[in-house]
């Protein structure tokens, strides 16, 4: 226990802070703007509809101490029924088409959809084929898209902000 406390103290707070605007200004600014717009928590349901799992790794990184998404009331939830926002990755595989549509239908209104990654934006390197429906917008309505292969966490955070601004 002692060692855990010691390690926590030595690690300190890594979340890129507000007062350090020159060095890494964006993370904190984005957090504050999102909170300012929403004034409440934002619940995200992530759906991998065919990704290579690269985007998932970067979405996971949003929860590390540097981006500290959950610390700001933006959290990933276990069911679409609890979600305000669907974060969808991948070219949508035909085998995931029905599951994605059902997830969308299960999300309460008003629901937002953020497509993450080049594949989600335009099908990426996989494109459309006998097995792939291509971009997410070919299957469910998309409100905002974040390009990148995979987009780094900061870009995904910007995407969430872009969506929040639309909610204003």
């Amino acid at each position: 226990m002692q060692r855990i406390v010691w390690k926590i103290l030595r690690t300190g707070i890594l979340t890129e802070p507000v007062y350090n605007l020159d060095k890494l200004p964006e993370v904190a600014r984005i957090h504050h703007e999102i909170l300012h717009i929403l004034g409440r928590a934002l619940c995200i349901r992530q759906v991998d509809a065919g990704s290579c799992n690269g985007c998932e790794l970067e979405i996971h990184a949003l929860n590390n101490p540097y981006y500290n998404l959950e610390g700001y009331g933006i959290k990933f939830v276990a069911s679409p029924r609890h979600a305000d926002l669907l974060m969808v990755t991948g070219p949508v595989s035909h085998n995931m088409e029905v599951a994605l549509k059902r997830t969308y239908e299960a999300t309460p209104d008003p629901k937002l959809v953020l497509a993450v990654g080049d594949c989600g934006c335009d099908g990426g390197i996989f494109g459309e084929s006998y097995a792939s429906c291509g971009r997410v917008a070919n299957v469910i309505p998309v409100d905002f898209a974040v390009p990148g292969c995979p987009p780094p966490p900061i870009d995904i955070l910007r995407g969430v902000l872009g969506l929040a601004r639309r909610m204003k």
């Binding site: 065919g50 990704s51 991948g90 070219p91 595989s93 035909h94 494109g127 084929s129 006998y130 097995a131």
Partner: peptide, 23 residues
Amino acid sequence: LGYVHKGIEKRFTQLAPLEAHRL
């Protein structure tokens, strides 16, 4: 399994050998 089958092996045949490392 098989939910994320997106036709990668067929897609390889549509790419130039010097480009397919990206896939």
